[in-house]
Amino acid sequence: MKATAIVLATIALAFMATAPDPAVAQQTKTEGTVKLTPFEARGITLSTIYTVDGKFAEKHGVDVPAAFSLAAPRREGQEIHAQAKPSGGGPIKIYFTTDDGKKSIFSSLQIITYSLKTDDPQKRLEVGDYFAIELLKKLGTNQNTRLNIRRPIKIGDLPAAEVVGNFVNKDGDQLLVRLVALAKPGTRDGIIGIAVGHPRQGRIKKVEDIFETSASLAFDTLEFK
């Protein structure tokens, strides 16, 4: 998987450079549909639905090998900004920012794609786990990057590989990251969701708080089309 690791390094470096930049979020826009939310238990009444499929691919000039949709929670005090074909690869990146002029980032979710060479369900999970770990290794610098959680989970009814860690970005911020690899049934295509939480916004105090970020909650609603 040497060639794959090189590709992942390129993705991670580009991702690391762009994720903390509020100016990017302020300038980007990808259309979504506002609907009732799957987050009622958290007091969130609305969400924005993003569908990334053939129409999205044609409109934005990006590859979408595995079409999907997800719901982005619309929280009080937050704005949602989505960018098609973001730096670092993949079809879409979604930023959850403050609703003031600074547009400081609470969390962000980038979706990247990968291809598999096996149809075996267990092997698919192992490959996804490998990709997630390799991406984590490339975030920040090795001495500052930590692995906190590594486990198999489910997104809906589909098996997935989850990795949670933390790293220091180029600005010296300590960030939390949740990477989830998911393979589309009946294909050799998969996606990795990269949810990053920014503790300086005050909503992340411990590792487990990454799961309550808007970016992480959004990925948990993902469904293949």
Rank of each mutant, 00 (worst) to 15 (best):
T48C: 07
G90T: 03
N169M: 08
E79I: 03
P86T: 05
K85T: 09
A66Y: 02
P73S: 10
S107K: 02
N144F: 11
V62C: 03
T51L: 09
A14E: 15
S87V: 06
T10E: 13
K170H: 14
I204K: 01
V24P: 01
I204G: 02
T145W: 01
D129G: 11
F56C: 04
V24H: 05
L46R: 15
G197H: 01
K2C: 02
S214H: 04
I94S: 00
Q26E: 15
R178W: 12
D100F: 04
A195E: 15
E212M: 09
E212A: 09
A195D: 13
T98W: 02
D53H: 11
F56R: 03
D99G: 02
V7M: 09
Q78M: 14
S108P: 02
R75I: 10
Q83L: 14
K138H: 12
L135T: 08
D119S: 14
F167G: 02
V168D: 07
A41K: 14
A215Y: 07
L176W: 12
R75K: 11
L116I: 02
L46W: 08
A25H: 06
A19G: 00
E126T: 11
P152H: 04
V52G: 05
A3L: 09
S216V: 10
F106R: 01
Q201K: 14
A5F: 06
A161G: 15
G172F: 06
D209M: 02
D99R: 03
V64L: 04
E79Q: 13
D171P: 00
I133Q: 15
F167S: 01
K154G: 03
S115D: 15
D173E: 15
A161E: 10
G43L: 06
G101D: 12
S87E: 13
A19T: 06
S104K: 12
N169Q: 06
I80P: 04
E126A: 15
I6E: 12
H81Q: 09
R124I: 02
G186R: 03
A19N: 10
V64Q: 04
V163D: 08
L158T: 11
P121Q: 04
T45S: 14
G101R: 11
G190E: 10
G88R: 07
L182F: 08
Q26F: 12
P20N: 11
G197Y: 00
Q78N: 05
T213A: 06
G43P: 10
Y130S: 13
K103E: 13
V64D: 05
P159N: 15
S115H: 11
K117R: 12
F224D: 02
T37L: 03
A9E: 14
H81T: 03
L147M: 14
L135H: 07
D99P: 00
Q83G: 02
I153P: 09
T48S: 13
R74H: 08
R75E: 10
G88Y: 01
D171W: 05
I111H: 03
D53P: 13
D63I: 03
V52M: 00
K123V: 11
D99Y: 01
G156V: 08
V164M: 08
K103N: 13
G202L: 09
A215T: 12
A17C: 07
L182I: 10
V196G: 07
G32L: 03
K206N: 04
L139C: 11
K117H: 11
T45L: 14
P121G: 05
R151V: 13
L136H: 09
G128H: 01
D53I: 11
